[in-house]
Each structure stands twice: as C-alpha cells, then as structure tokens.
Design a binder for these strands. Structure first.
Lengths: 197, 197
DNA sequence: TTGACAAAACTAATCATATTAGTTAAAATA
DNA sequence: TATTTTAACTAATATGATTAGTTTTGTCAA
C-alpha cells in the first residue's frame, strides 16, 4: 500500500503534464499541481525550488524523451530517408506528446547546461545526417538550421491553429519536406557542376 | 501642458512594449504598465478590460504593423525577388521590433475576427507571390505554408538563442532561403518535364 | 460663468498564487 | 530504540489582477 504513494519529481512532472494537457502550458500553477497530488503547495518545495525550476526540469525531461525519439527514428538511415524519418518522428512527437513538446520548446533557460548539452547532441546528430548533401561543416550547419526552422515553424503554427485554409496539413507537410529535399539535391547538383567547371 | 498627458490605448500599448523590451513578453504586468504611466492599476480598466485584452489589442496592433511591412516590401516585385524581399522584411521586423513581433505571435486568441482577418489577408498576399512557382491553388498554399514555417521557425529559434554553433546566422538565413527557392524551381522544372512527358 | 454629465482617476477590498519560515510527523537508519 | 532526515503541515508575506464604489476633472450647453 505505501508503494505507489511516494512522491517524486517524476510524479510532479506527470501531474504537471496532465494539467498542461487540459489548461495549456502558460496556465500551469503550483496550486493546481498540489491539488492533483493532494498535498499543499508549500510541500512541493521539498522537491522542487519553485515554478520556474519545475518548468526547467520539465524541459530537460522533455528534451530527453525528444532526443531519444529523434535518434531512434534516424538509426541506420541516411540521405533523404533519414531526413524524412526524423521529420516524421518530430511531427509525431508534437502531435502525440504536445505538452511535453511545449515544455521543451518553452523551457525557461535554454542555456542551462544539462538542457543545452542534449540540444547540442541532437544538433550533432542532425549535422551528420547532412553529410550526403553538404561537404563543408558550415554548409551542413546551414542545412540543419533550415530543417529545424522548418519543423519548428510548422509545428508551432499548427499548434496555435495557424493553418486555416481548407488544405490538408499533412499534405502540406509532405510537400514542404519534398521541397526542402529538392533544394538540397539541387544544391548538390550545382556543386558538382562547379567542380567540373 | 495638458496636451501630451491624455492617456489612450496607444499610450498603454507603447508603455507595454517598453516593458516587454526590458523584461520579456511573459513578464508584462498591469502593475508595471500603471507604474510607467504614473497611474494606479485599476485606472487602466477605464481603457482596457484586463491584461488578456491588452495582449489581444497589442496583437492586433502588431499584426497591423507587420502586415504593412510585409505588403510594402513585396510591392511591385514577383518571383524569387519578391520572396527574398518579404523574407528580409520579415527578419528585419523581428530584429528591429522584437516585442511587437512577439505580441503578434503570442496573441491570446488568434481566432479573434480583427486579427484573423489581417492574417488571412497576409496569407492571400503571399499566395499570390507563389503564382510563379505553383499552378494550383493548393500547391501555392503548400508553398506559403513552407515559407511561413521557415521564417517563423528561424525567427523563433534565433530569438530564444537557439543557434549556438559558431556559424553566421545571417549566412544561414541566406543559405536556407536559397535552398527554399531552389526547391521551388526544381518543383517547376519537374512539373514542366511531366507536362511534356 | 455655471451646473449637469461623462470620462477617468482614485481608494478600498477581494481573490489567487508564489514563496518563505518555522513546526511536526513519519520514515529511515545508526 | 534513539537519532536523523525527509517531507508533510500551518501561518504569514508579497505581488498582482480585478471589482466596487467614490471622487475628481474636464467638457459643454444653457
């Protein structure tokens, strides 16, 4: 009986996610978290140092799950296949774990070492995927920034209900990804032509 | 002397922008707004119906300025020239009027008619710009969604300090835009080939 | 000029929330 | 079992949004 009862940071995060599911990221309050956990708000301070710290920890937790999803999706793939895979995994994460995704993107301090380190690893992974399309390191980074911008922007606009025209959003997503890959390929093409000048 | 003193919704918005410039969008409070305007917080309710309503009005005000900047930049241009122009204007707006841009993108209710109408007009304008690259209406909308995603994502990641590698962000932006345009062109190309099958 | 009216300020009060301080009970451990 | 730590609690403070009711002030017509 005294098994499941033990409170932990994980339980606090789980409760917070529940609340965000219902009320949205901005509406998270310690008062509500305490209510869900059936304790008084000050008791939470035995586990976390405040609302901002909770958000920070949620960000790290979310980033961990996200990093895992991204890495898994790309494993063993290369070229456009890998790019499609991580992009689909990205959007799947956004759709299926929206509150977690928001906890990641709206983390109070992105510079916090643990968070930043994971972010950095993710960027490295993506940069490797660009090997097929760009030779120089800086070009690969440009490509990664492009993909991240695309995915981040699409997800954000979709989440806030921004795509209002009566056109399939998933078709748009495929179209946009195709466009991006075509851009990469066309880039390759022109590079090869230059080399044979 | 009693000239400049008159309070108005414009002055309230201006004061709010000042505060956001310094403390960030989330930290806006009516208490601070009142302090800047040298009145007591309840007095604000003679002009606005609360913090959320203020944010909504700021969103509309911001969208108006943004729509103006976008439209002006594209005027008389077409094809890739127009796309580069609106993209540059977009990023310029983000950089020079950051608080306003955030007030627009984080507006409490994007469905509010006045806001949504402007948003719709902006989308129409951008869709027209895609005439050169896509024939069907739905393809043009896909293209617009791609561009918006790209710009929105790049701006958001840059604002939150997400591009950490030692690579020029403005070069990345140019690279990404080039990539996007190449994608559009390559799309055209393959469409023409198909037609001549 | 003055009295009525409307606008816009004010004070007082309420409520929700975060957070701190200090206390206590319960669990873990020596 | 005695001690120590953990994690709950109550009480209190501070900030901020918001409402109610009052007062001031500026405008405008008689």
């Amino acid at each position: 009986m005294p098994r499941q009862e033990k409170l932990s940071i994980e339980k606090i995060i789980a409760a917070s996610i529940e609340i965000i599911d219902v009320k949205g990221y901005n509406a998270l309050t310690l008062a509500d978290v305490a209510k869900v956990l059936k304790i008084k708000p000050p008791s939470l301070y035995n586990h976390i140092s405040g609302l901002d710290a909770l958000r920070q920890q949620m960000g790290h937790y979310a980033m961990t799950a996200f990093y895992d999803a991204m890495t898994t999706s790309a494993f063993g793939k290369s070229g456009s296949e890998a790019i499609y895979a991580v992009s689909d995994a990205y959007m799947q994460f956004v759709k299926e774990r929206t509150s977690l995704y928001q906890s990641m993107t709206r983390v109070p301090n992105e510079s916090e070492p643990a968070y930043a380190a994971l972010n950095q690893k993710l960027t490295s992974m993506l940069t490797q995927l660009m090997a097929h399309y760009a030779e120089s390191e800086s070009d690969r980074i440009h490509c990664v920034r492009g993909l991240r911008s695309l995915l981040y922007g699409f997800a954000a606009i979709e989440l806030e209900g921004g795509f209002r025209m009566a056109v399939s959003k998933s078709e748009s997503f495929q179209y946009i990804l195709d466009l991006y890959i075509k851009g990469l390929e066309s880039n390759c093409q022109s590079r090869k032509l230059e080399n044979n000048h």
